[in-house]
Amino acid sequence: MDLNDDGNIDLLGEGYAGFTYVLWGQKDGSFKKAVILKDKSGKDIHLGSYYDLKKHEYIGNFFKSGDKGYFAKAHDWDGDGDLDLVISGFNGAWLRLNEGSKKKPAFATENIHIIKKHYADVFVDWDGDGLWDIIGGDKDGGVYFYKNIGKKRKPAFGEAVCLLSPEEFANKEYGGFGMASQVDVADYNHDGKLDLIVGTKNMVPIAGTEFTNEELNKEHKKIEAQSKEITKKVFTERKKIKDRYQKKFGENYMKEMNKDKDHKKLMDTFSKFSKRYNTFYSQYKSHGFVFVSLQK
């Protein structure tokens, strides 16, 4: 991807702290060190939740939030000839329009929520109707397709269609599933058809576990749903308590907040669930595989 149209390939990515980085490509094919991309007002680009690198504190609902960036891609979303930014997070993907030019990008200060679920990894005309579509992975490990039902310069999307379910990444012998999928689309074997290349956190049950693969998969789905619910609840409640103590004690709120009974109870709930969560997944061996699925 050539973000500033200087003829050199650049690398784009998202750090865990929630900022979008670019490594500018040089004429000799090398790269400059990663720098945080700024919007047109000079502010760091993020989705609202991030880790403040100067104050060393979490801003927003950092850990399981829909508004913290996981992955960043560049794509000419509005068909005006320059590259815009698409940043994926826990609850879908957001758009930062390039309000500058092809050679001098100036990204908007606002994030526009474009899809509510899954990641937006690739923008490609998957169904061959002349409009680019979205293909993306998900925390759940599946691969999803959003058909572009809009027009050339006005993309629009309906519901996602699952191209590959997490269970399709199961080990042939031991079962299991995929998680945290990231996708690329390319003609991998140059046969004229688009193929899927998928990076996953591949979970394979450890040999000798007392449960069947079906039982484990059922429990996995249950525990993931609970995780989403409990984490959301804990962080929403914790934010309320934090705001209350911060208002009263200012910068030294943490010490006082830790003594709070409700806060302690909340943290205990979270800690107990985390223990259960980790115990469940200790029945698996995880791999970071890259799969290819060739289109027939």
Binding site: W126, D127, F145, K147, G158, E159, V161, C162, L163, L164, E168, F169, L196, I197, V198, F289, V290, F291, V292, S293, L294, Q295, K296
Partner: peptide, 19 residues
């Protein structure tokens, strides 16, 4: 797309192979 989508697209994909 929602109801028939999986059948329309998944059927053209080959088996998953680890690179």
């Amino acid at each position: 797309m929602t109801i028939a989508g999986s059948a329309m697209f998944a059927q053209t994909l080959g088996k998953l192979t680890i690179i």
